[in-house]
Structures are given as C-alpha cells and as structure tokens.
C-alpha cells in the first residue's frame, strides 16, 4: 500500500506542475487573440477614451508578465479572482459582485450533473455491449454493435445532437430539445430536460469504452487459464465475467476514466446546442469577451478533471492487479 501512496503523491505533484504549465499556456494564448475585454465589451460603441478607462480600471494596461503573477498570487491563496465583466460593472453601479468561484460553482454542478447522468447510462451500456460483443464475437450482433457505436463516434457531436432532436423532440415529442435547467427545478424534471444531451454524449463516448472492453476480453481469451476454465466445462458467459473480466479491468477502467474526463471537458458543443447552462457555455461566453479570470478558472478545472481522473484510473488499475499491488 505504501507504494500506492507514493505514486499518488508523485502524481499529484506532477499534476500541480501540469496545471501551472496549462495556466501559462492559456494566459498567453488568450492574450494573443486579437482584441481584449475592453474592445469586446464595448464593441461598436468603443471610443479610445472608454477603452483606456476600462483597461486602466481592470489593470489591462499593465505588462503581461506582471498581470500573470498577480493572478498567480491570487491562485496560490485559492482566490480565483473576480471576472472582468463583474469588476467592470461593479465600479459602474457599485452593486455587489460575485467572484469567479461563485460564478462557476452552479455551472460546474450542472455540468457534473449532466456528466453523472451520462455516465450512469453510458458506462453500464458500454461494458455490457463490450462483454456481449466479446462473447458473440464475429457474429451479426458483434458487427451491428460495432458498426452502430463506431458510426456514432465518427459523426460530429452537433450532428448526433440534431439527429436526436429530430427523432425525439420534433417527430416524436418525448424529450424537450431545450435543456434550460435551473436551480430549484424538481429532480425528475431536471432529469427529463437533461436526457437528450445525456444521450448525445452517451453516443459519443460509448464506442471507445465498448471497443476497449471487447478487445481486452478477447485478448485474454487466448491465455492458458481461460483454456483451463473452458476445459473445466464452464459456460462461456461465466468464463468471461468471472475469469476474463477481472483481469481486463485495468485497461477498461483507464478508458472509462478518460471518457469521464471528456464528459466534463468536452461538453462545450453539446451544451451550446441544447442551451444547457453548464460550464462549457460559460467558457464560450467568457472566451468571446476575453474574460481572462473566468477562462483561466475554467481551463484549470478542465485540466484538473483530466489529471484527477487519470490518477484515479491508475490507482484503480493498480488495485485491480495483484501483481502491481504487491511488487517484488
């Protein structure tokens, strides 16, 4: 167990370094886009004076490096800062401002909700399909399942979203096409409204997990201990579930974790199509107006989600593999 702890600490340390690098890359990238917050927010109404006023108020006239370190200093004390939009309008009317953290929290929880709903559908579905495909490999079922999942992963997300809207919202009005969930909405309604985006994401992530499950199991089926199990006269289903699956868990968990991370970071397009008020929409809005504190915070959350889920995947695969759990 000591080695696991060591690995966790090592990986967490590396994760923090990664986050640091990500923050620099994002900061430089967003700042090198044409236009800045002052220009974006004023649009056609911009005058050189008003742009200068906003830049001065927000500190955008400071050198880039200085601004980065000011932001980093806040970050080290877990202060994500205040969005430019809020700051700009605050000295406008003096109304109370909300910090980036307060702005992101409800959006992130919406995205997490969508990710959980999707995971609850996609993971069991993918693993079951994978096991069945391994069991009935090279049959019509296997081919059909492969073809369906591969074609859904190969189409762009917005296309799958529109296909689902066409079939489940326009032709057969079962689910709403508008997923405008809000605070205080009853759980059942929330679930119903999130169904189409969840199904879209399911179609996108299922193929990867299913193919990996199938491949991992099939590669084990040639090993001697499976041969032994078969010779004992066990049923093919039992061979796969009890004997093959536990050994195939490591790669499957890895792929599942990767896809779960995608459910948090890759939802931007789906959220825009379904008008789902998650972090993806907030991210798009913020990039549009060059609201760097919000963009930075969103990117760090995305990066952290990837790092943590990958770490979890590694730990779970170590735990699921006795050889890694007890290294010589």
């Amino acid at each position: 167990m000591q080695s696991i702890l060591k690995i966790v600490l090592q990986r967490l340390g590396l994760g923090i370094v990664t986050l640091f690098v990500v923050s620099i890359v994002i900061f430089v990238a967003v700042n090198s886009l044409p236009g800045d917050f002052a220009q974006a927010i004023l649009g056609q109404g911009a005058t050189p004076e008003s742009i200068a006023t906003i830049r001065r108020d927000l500190g955008l006239d400071q050198p880039l490096i200085l601004r980065y370190f000011i932001w980093l200093k806040g970050m080290l004390t877990f202060d994500l800062g205040t969005s430019f939009a809020q700051l700009n309008f605050a000295n406008f009317g003096g109304a109370g401002t909300t910090t980036v953290a307060e702005q992101i929290a409800p959006r992130l929880s919406n995205t997490m909700f969508l990710a959980s709903v999707t995971a609850c559908i996609a993971v069991p579905l993918a693993v079951t399909l994978g096991v069945l495909a391994a069991l009935y490999r090279n049959t019509a079922f296997d081919k059909a399942a492969n073809m369906f999942t591969l074609s859904s992963i190969s189409s762009p997300e917005f296309f799958m979203a529109y296909v689902l809207i066409l079939f489940f919202a326009v032709l057969n009005p079962i689910f709403p096409s508008l997923s405008n969930i809000y605070d205080g909405m009853p759980f059942s309604e929330r679930l119903e409204k999130s169904m189409l985006p969840a199904l879209t994401l399911t179609l996108v992530v299922t193929a990867h997990m299913m193919r990996m499950t199938r491949a991992a199991i099939i590669s084990l089926l040639a090993s001697p201990y499976i041969e032994m199990a078969r010779l004992k006269g066990l049923s093919p289903m039992r061979v796969i579930i009890v004997h093959a699956l536990p050994n195939a868990l490591a790669p499957i968990i890895n792929v599942i974790a990767l896809n779960l991370a995608y459910l948090i970071t890759g939802v931007v397009v789906v959220e825009v199509v379904f008008v789902y008020p998650g972090i993806g929409q907030l991210f798009v809005d913020s990039v549009k107006i060059r609201d760097i504190p919000v963009v930075q915070a969103c990117c760090l959350i995305f990066a952290a989600a990837y790092i943590l889920l990958n770490l979890t995947a590694d730990i779970l695969s170590i735990i699921s593999n006795p050889r890694l759990r007890h290294p010589k």
Partner: peptide, 18 residues
C-alpha cells in the same frame, strides 16, 4: 430564455419550448 445559438432557437420554437 437566453438562446444565443440560431439553430437552438429555431428548434426551441419548432418544438414548442418557447
């Protein structure tokens, strides 16, 4: 309801959501 995306807005009207 804020719907900045053109297609999403059309969909919302077509499906009776707005």
């Amino acid at each position: 309801i804020a719907i900045n995306d053109n297609t999403a807005r059309m969909n919302a009207l077509m499906t009776g959501a707005v």
